[in-house]
Structure formats: structure tokens, C-alpha cells
């Protein structure tokens, strides 16, 4: 089974689920051989209120209801919101969401994120966190609290059993810098998503941290996401692990109280 562990749904102009985009993703999956999309719905700018992330998670729930065999959900929260932990608990226990999605409101190793990470560690559910080491002034200014690989290293030292996924190696930013740091974090997983499809990138990731920690993902760059895995210098068994086996093993760890 091929699992895209980092994809998104989005809102239509009226705030409801954009069903056309939701269906187009499934169509793309059919064309390119992706069985399951693990999705969140992000608000990319401004502060993230409870109403906003609750609404975003509702849209994920609707997408799952629309294509129950093809979508799995991450619960997206702002960790500094007092209702964040309750939102996570409800989505994981009641709605069957598979994990937690964090964006760039706080560094992943910030104390304010710790209760979320503790719960994820206790329940053995994955935390997919936006990440990057941007080198351009525009991104640096827009995302002052984007976590880079060094933040991830510190987070898993504090929570050694945490299933933490560094998002989109190809999502922009200096991916070689990320790989240098992730060698120091033996429990961090790395997803391959993003619009950067640099030759040699996936092979270098495998060499740096091992094939068992590499997870296939697209983050909306679907042909590029599939293509970079097809071109990687992997055995059939290794490719199957990256394309879905590794993430399926993560989902099997779930131990929700």
C-alpha cells in the first residue's frame, strides 16, 4: 500500500471543504498509484485560533467521510491555545484521526508544545511538524518560528519515545543542512515531500539516516513526490518501505488510552 503521509485538504471560499480539490487529489492518487493520503488543513498566515483549527479539523473529518478508504486525518492545532490538548484528544479518540499536525506557530522544542508532544508520545501517535531551514529573506521573515532540524533534535532528546516526523525535506530550505542535523536524532522520521526535486536528495537522506526513517509524501507536489522515490537508488523492498511500509508500521504503534 502506498501512503502519502503529508498531504492537505483545503477550504472553499465559503469555509466548507473544497470538495473539488478533495476529489482531484483522489483522482491524482489513482493516476499515480497512491492509495491513502494523510491530510491536514492548514491556515498558513496569521494567528491560529481555536475556531480556526477546529474548523480545519472538521473539514478533514468531512474529507474522510467523503473518501473513507483514501483519507486519514491529522489533527491540526496551535499548541498555545488552551483548548488544543482537548481538541487533539477528541479528534484522535472520537474521530479516528491518526496523528497531530503542527505548523510554524512555535518551535517544536518550545516548552509550550511539550504537553502535545507528551500526549503523542504516551499514545504513540505521530506528530508531523512543518520544518525547514530557509535561506531566503522572504521565508525567514514570513516564518520566524519555523522549526529546523536542530529543533527536532532537541525535541526528541526530551521525548525519546516520540514519533516525530520532520516535514518535507524538499519543502524549501537547505536540505543538506537538515540531513547533517538529523543524523544526531535517531528517532526522527523524515518525509520526502515538497516542490524541490533535487537529484540525489532522497539517496542522501537514506544514506544519512537510514531507509527505515524515510517516509514518502507529496505535500501537493504529486508527480514530483512520486518521481523522486521512483528515481531513488533503492531495492524493491526498500522502496516499498519508503512508499508505505514505514508509515504503516508507525500507525501500528498506536496505543491510545
Amino acid at each position: 500500500m502506498v501512503i502519502d503521509c503529508h498531504m492537505h485538504v483545503r477550504a472553499a471560499k465559503d469555509g466548507s471543504l473544497d470538495t473539488a480539490y478533495c476529489d482531484a487529489t483522489i483522482e491524482a492518487g489513482d493516476l499515480l498509484g497512491i492509495d491513502v493520503f494523510c491530510v491536514s488543513d492548514l491556515q498558513l498566515t496569521g494567528p491560529l485560533t481555536y475556531d480556526e483549527f477546529h474548523g480545519a479539523n472538521e473539514r478533514v473529518k468531512q474529507a474522510i467521510a467523503r473518501h473513507p478508504k483514501r483519507y486519514r486525518g491529522y489533527c491540526y492545532v496551535n499548541p498555545s491555545d488552551p483548548k488544543a490538548l482537548d481538541e487533539v484528544k477528541a479528534r484522535i479518540k472520537d474521530d479516528g484521526f491518526i496523528g497531530i499536525k503542527l505548523y510554524n506557530q512555535h518551535f517544536i522544542d518550545d516548552d509550550i508544545v511539550a504537553p502535545i508532544l507528551q500526549l503523542a508520545s504516551d499514545w504513540q501517535i505521530p506528530v508531523l511538524s512543518h520544518a525547514g531551514h530557509p535561506m531566503d529573506p522572504t521565508t525567514q521573515k514570513l516564518q520566524p518560528f519555523i522549526s529546523d532540524a536542530a529543533h527536532f533534535v532537541r525535541a526528541v532528546k526530551r521525548f525519546p519515545k516520540l514519533i516525530l516526523i520532520h516535514a518535507h525535506l524538499g519543502g524549501g530550505g537547505d536540505w543538506e543542512w537538515a540531513l547533517k542535523h538529523l543524523q544526531e536524532a535517531p528517532t526522527v522520521y523524515l518525509d520526502t515531500a515538497g516542490s524541490v526535486i533535487d537529484e540525489w536528495m532522497v539517496d542522501k537522506a537514506v544514506a544519512a539516516i537510514g531507509v527505515e526513517r524515510i517516509l514518502f509524501a507529496t505535500d501537493m507536489t504529486i508527480e514530483g513526490g512520486v518521481g523522486k522515490i521512483l528515481d531513488a537508488n533503492l531495492t524493491d523492498e526498500q522502496r516499498a518501505r519508503v512508499l508505505g511500509g514505514n508509515f504503516a508500521a508507525i500507525l501500528d504503534k498506536r496505543a491510545v488510552a
Binding site: 526535486i197 537529484e199 540525489w200 518521481g227 523522486k228
Partner: peptide, 16 residues
């Protein structure tokens, strides 16, 4: 865009 970029995505785009 090879060897800066990996080749398969270009073919997948045309295929799709």
C-alpha cells in the same frame, strides 16, 4: 532539469 533535478517527475507529468 537533470542533473540538478531528478528526471521521473517530468515524464510523470506528461503521462498524466
Amino acid at each position: 532539469g537533470f542533473p540538478f533535478k531528478t528526471p521521473s517527475p517530468a515524464f510523470l507529468k506528461l503521462q498524466c
